[in-house]
Simulated scan of single mutants.
Amino acid sequence: MTTTQRQKPVFRFAPSPNGPLHLGHALSALINQDMAGKADGRLLLRIEDIDLTRCTPDFETGIYHDMEWLGISWERPARRQSEHFGEYQAALQQLIGRGLVYPSFMTRGEVKTKVASHEAAGVPWPRDPDGSPLYPAEDRELSEVERAERLSAGLKHAWRLDMRRALEAAGSNLSWTDTGDGERGIVEADPAAWGDVILSRSDAPSSYHLSVVLDDALQGVTHVVRGLDLFHATSVHRLLQVLLDLPEPAYHHHRLVTDASGRKLSKSEGDTGIAELRAKGLSAADIRQLVGL
């Protein structure tokens, strides 16, 4: 990387190869390209394939084809998260060494049962900004002896951020600067709203939260441009950036592409994909028009 490259603003588009790209992805990729062009910046492509069970080479190939067809150029090669698990594990071990994470042993079913029992008694369970129940406190409150015994017994577990300790270590006044379509200017971060988030699971060496902040730092990303569905998650990312002494990028959370009912487009719901629209005869210019650019 040359000195000139380092000085240029760096943008990135970071899809997961767990399904075909749809219009929402096209909007994000095109906005990244347009903003990078206006800033005389660089555009990177990152393949976020930490979920090895759902991400496939065919979907990854489809991403490259769709991007090229849309007329989007990026620096090659693309970064593939599955090739960097060691870097994520090193960061996790750093947090473990500082006592900021803990092993959690409850299964999804056990958490669901506990929450249901609690709410059946008429007491609402706290939930994160996405509506998911926060993880119970039992594992966080285990003694070191109990944790060691469970780990030595080989019990399946995830690693979770101890939000209370993490906030104490990071200090107050966490915030970020946003220029997007939602709240703009200086945004006060609220990581506590997410509870003790997962940083690593038994079936995935890193979570989205941990890998994305490390990738952005390691790739020198200066501008994170992504959908408003990730606006609130930025609170967790800012916390991890402070804990791991990573640089703070500028953020731009853009509007989402929704269907007729106002629902965000989703791969899992089978929303119309870029490849399907191309097969129907639409052009790249048609796609820009469909997403309002």
Rank of each mutant, 00 (worst) to 15 (best):
P133N: 07
P124M: 02
E144W: 07
A148L: 15
A166Q: 00
S117H: 08
E168G: 03
Y208S: 07
D181G: 09
L134H: 08
V197Q: 04
E146W: 02
G109N: 13
W159Q: 00
R147D: 09
G171M: 04
A120C: 01
I186V: 15
P133F: 05
V187K: 08
W194N: 14
A170V: 01
P191I: 06
L161V: 03
W159H: 03
R184Y: 13
R127Q: 04
D178S: 14
G109I: 05
G171Q: 01
R150Q: 09
D216G: 03
E146K: 06
K114Q: 04
W159M: 01
E146G: 03
G131I: 11
A148Q: 15
A158D: 06
R147E: 13
S117W: 12
P129C: 04
V123W: 14
Q219K: 08
K156W: 09
K156Y: 03
W125C: 02
E188G: 07
E168T: 11
P191D: 09
L142I: 10
R150H: 11
G171F: 04
S211I: 02
S200K: 07
T179R: 13
D178E: 13
D178N: 15
A121D: 11
A153Q: 14
S172F: 01
S202C: 13
R140S: 02
G122S: 00
L134M: 11
A193W: 09
S202M: 03
T179K: 14
R147A: 11
V115H: 12
L151F: 11
P136C: 08
V187A: 12
R147N: 10
A169R: 05
A121Q: 11
G171Y: 00
V115P: 08
L151S: 06
S143M: 00
W125I: 00
L142W: 03
P191G: 06
P124D: 09
L174E: 01
S211M: 03
S172A: 12
H157E: 04
A169K: 12
R147C: 12
A121N: 08
S152D: 11
D215A: 12
G131T: 08
V123C: 05
S152H: 00
N173L: 04
A121P: 01
P191S: 13
R165E: 10
A116W: 09
A153L: 08
A116H: 10
V111Y: 07
V111G: 03
A217L: 02
G131V: 01
K112V: 04
I198D: 10
D139T: 04
E146I: 09
M163V: 00
A148V: 08
A137K: 06
S211D: 09
G180Y: 12
H118V: 01
R160N: 09
L218E: 09
S207E: 05
D181K: 10
S172Q: 14
D128Y: 12
E144M: 07
R160W: 04
P136L: 04
M163W: 00
G154P: 12
V213M: 08
I186A: 13
L199M: 05
E110T: 00
H209R: 07
P124Q: 07
E183C: 13
E141Q: 14
